[in-house]
């Protein structure tokens, strides 16, 4: 029975050592070299086809120093009103779109959970999620600007739409992973659909819901800072104008404010998420 006697009598360690090779990442040699070759080919092709105007880049390098020195010192004051206005737009946009987006994402998430929703509703909700996640916020903003005109409302709608896709997808995954036994137990008491959701599903996904909301608040602020580039309001508008007018010191001030707020958002959302878990 002793494990020590398990060794086979005629084992030839020298032969085994000669035959041993370090195991490769991909088992089949054909596939392995195909992958290596493909990767190499792609990188070469990719790098070769990048059209770079080197003379322009070199010129720019010379100007970069002057351009970067234009950033210093950052000027918070002379365009202070514009910065304040942009900031307020960004912040309000963030708050409203996060609140509205979360509120709307809950029904969509319920509908996109295969264990809760009938097939037609499931497909419809999944389609909303797919569209919202495929297109970058900026592209959606372009469409909303075309529909409701320039200004923060377009930005707000964009972020709301993006929030719904993001939250609903992750929440639906979570709902599909809930413990069936708990849900069954509540259903066994004869609870109606709404109280069933409220008593068995909601408690299980609530920590994640709060965590994701905090995370999304953070993302929404970051995004609100760029939506202005296509006219959807917010601090990005101020930034874009500053760049257009070569007011780099104002641009630097705006960038610093963005970094500062992102940091605050990130720490707060991290704190909330730790607190919930």
């Amino acid at each position: 029975m002793s494990a020590t006697n398990a060794g086979t009598a005629g084992f030839d360690a020298a032969a085994a050592a000669r035959a041993w090779r370090p195991p490769p990442l991909i088992e089949s040699p054909l596939l392995r070299y195909a992958v290596y070759l493909g990767a190499l080919l792609y990188v070469v092709l990719g790098v070769v086809t990048v059209e770079v105007n080197w003379t322009r880049a070199a010129e720019g390098m010379g100007r970069a120093a002057g351009f970067l020195s234009g950033f210093f010192p950052p000027d918070f004051v002379s365009k202070g009103d514009d910065i304040f206005e942009g900031l307020m737009e960004s912040l309000t946009m963030t708050v409203v779109s996060t609140a509205l987006g979360i509120a709307l994402s809950i029904p969509v998430a319920l509908g996109a959970s295969r264990n809760l929703a009938p097939l037609p509703i499931y497909l419809f909700c999944r389609a909303i999620i797919a569209v919202s996640r495929t297109f970058q916020e900026i592209i959606i903003a372009i469409v909303f600007v075309a529909m409701v005109g320039f200004g923060p409302l377009a930005g707000m709608l964009t972020l709301t739409f993006a929030t719904v896709g993001f939250m609903a997808k992750l929440l639906a995954e979570d709902i599909e992973d809930i413990e069936a036994a708990q849900a069954e137990a509540v259903r066994a008491t004869g609870a109606g659909w709404f109280s069933w959701i409220a008593w068995s599903v909601l408690p299980q996904v609530k920590p994640r819901l709060i965590g994701l909301s905090a995370y999304r608040l953070d993302i929404n602020f970051r995004e609100s800072a760029v939506l202005g580039l296509v006219g959807a309001g917010g601090i990005g508008d101020t930034l874009n104008t500053a760049f257009d007018r070569y007011e780099f010191d104002t641009a630097a001030a705006v960038l610093l404010i963005i970094i500062a707020i992102v940091l605050v958002c990130e720490y707060t959302s991290g704190w909330i998420r730790r607190k919930v878990q």
Binding site: G60, I138, E223, V262
Partner: peptide, 17 residues
């Protein structure tokens, strides 16, 4: 991380064309 790729692009386009 704080600065969106679009803003990085905005700055880089000014420098590199």
């Amino acid at each position: 991380r704080s600065i969106n790729a679009l803003i990085w692009a905005l700055i880089l386009v000014i420098i590199l064309g």
